[in-house]
């Protein structure tokens, strides 16, 4: 049943205002994609366009190689065989959990309906809650019922609009992993929209980072962190600082912190001035190191300390150190650079 999705050079307008431009990506059957970006970047509009709620002004959307949206034609939502989980869940308050799940199963035989409802209730771990009404359920339970309702008719593609945004932070990642397991088990093609990178990392095979209506990078979570395509992605995903550097060789640059080598060739001429990205995990705390920096500020993170350090040239960098290395502010501590992936940006 699972489908594959192609979005080709999609443009969408609200009134006369362009909110999406040139969005292109594909998902293979069973893949989980994610639209990640700050609020107002247009990521939800991508989802609504795929669902058929927003017609495109240019480009097209294909589900299993059948064109469902284009400038000229928009297949009604109810004929697209998609499922959707809404940010506010949109459970029907007059129907019980089981009736909500059964809602999309019109045309099934009653026995099959009952079996499917039971199967889904079991899958979401709520077999005893079929008769409960939405207002009697907790936020997490409502969320699971909404997911089960969307999955019940075995949609080709499942669309999820910020499905975890109303949850506690701890619950969020746990649910994200649970939902991923369920989707993988049922081999469902799915798209998640979120502004939370950890949610995206926990769920998605492929992440599109969206900013101002366009895709700025499409990659795995690991690559987004370690090889951000531009400053926006570098800033939006994870923490870090940008410091100036001079290119000294095919793989090396010289910085205030000394010479740094990467594992891929640098796309600039020797002698050029560039900016490089230093992540907190690139800076290793080492009491024996000759290189030192002064602690400006520190944040306790449980297992780690995040230190804000000032190096002798005056620049500030971040350093992630195990939390048994508890140093005071203004103390001078030893550091060592351990950069695997050298991220280089042109100077602006």
């Amino acid at each position: 049943m699972t489908s594959h999705l192609d979005v080709e050079e999609l443009d969408v307008n609200y009134d006369d205002h362009r909110v999406l431009q040139q969005i292109s990506f594909s998902l293979e059957p069973g893949q989980i994609g994610c639209m990640l970006g700050p609020s107002g970047c247009g990521k939800t509009t991508v989802l609504r366009a795929i669902a058929g709620f927003e017609p495109p002004v240019n480009g097209r959307i294909l589900i299993d190689d059948v064109e469902v949206s284009s400038k000229l034609y928009c297949l009604p939502t109810e004929k697209r065989n998609i499922g959707m989980v809404f940010q506010d869940y949109a459970l029907f308050p007059h129907l019980s959990a089981a009736e909500n799940i059964r809602f999309g199963l019109r045309g099934w035989k009653p026995k099959q309906q009952q079996a499917r409802v039971n199967e889904l209730l079991a899958m979401i771990g709520m077999p005893a809650y079929g008769q409960a009404f939405p207002h009697q359920l907790s936020g997490g339970q409502q969320q699971r019922v909404a997911l089960a309702r969307a999955m019940a008719p075995q949609p080709g593609i499942l669309l999820m609009d910020e499905p975890f945004s109303n949850m506690d932070v701890e619950l969020r990642e746990q649910l994200a992993r649970e939902v991923r397991d369920i989707l993988k088990q049922e081999n469902i093609t799915a798209i998640l929209v979120t502004h939370d990178q950890y949610e995206a990392f926990a769920m998605a095979d492929q992440i599109c980072v969206i900013n101002e209506g366009g895709i700025v990078q499409q990659d795995s979570g690991y690559n987004l962190y370690h090889q951000p395509a531009n400053r926006f992605v570098a800033d939006f995903i994870g923490q870090g600082v940008i410091i100036p550097a001079e290119v000294t060789g095919e793989f090396t640059v010289k910085t205030e912190l000394g010479v740094i080598s990467g594992d891929t060739p640098i796309d600039s001429d020797i002698g050029d001035t560039v900016d490089i990205l230093i992540r907190p995990d690139d800076v290793v705390h080492d009491d024996d190191s000759k290189e030192t920096a002064v602690v400006v500020e520190k944040a306790f993170r449980g297992a780690d300390f995040l230190y804000f350090l000032r190096i002798d040239s005056g620049s500030e960098i971040l350093c992630l150190a195990p939390s048994h290395h508890d140093h005071r502010v203004n103390e001078r501590i030893g550091i060592r650079l351990n950069v695997d992936h050298l991220v280089v940006f042109d100077r602006v």
């Binding site: 939502t77 109810e78 998609i82 959707m84 809602f103 999309g104 309702r149 949609p155």
Partner: peptide
Amino acid sequence: PSMDEAARSLGYKPSHILLKVHLPL
């Protein structure tokens, strides 16, 4: 509005949504 959209994504035509979702509510 998301309830209308949820019903449509579950395969209901607007006229059926009126009958199945709006009327009881």
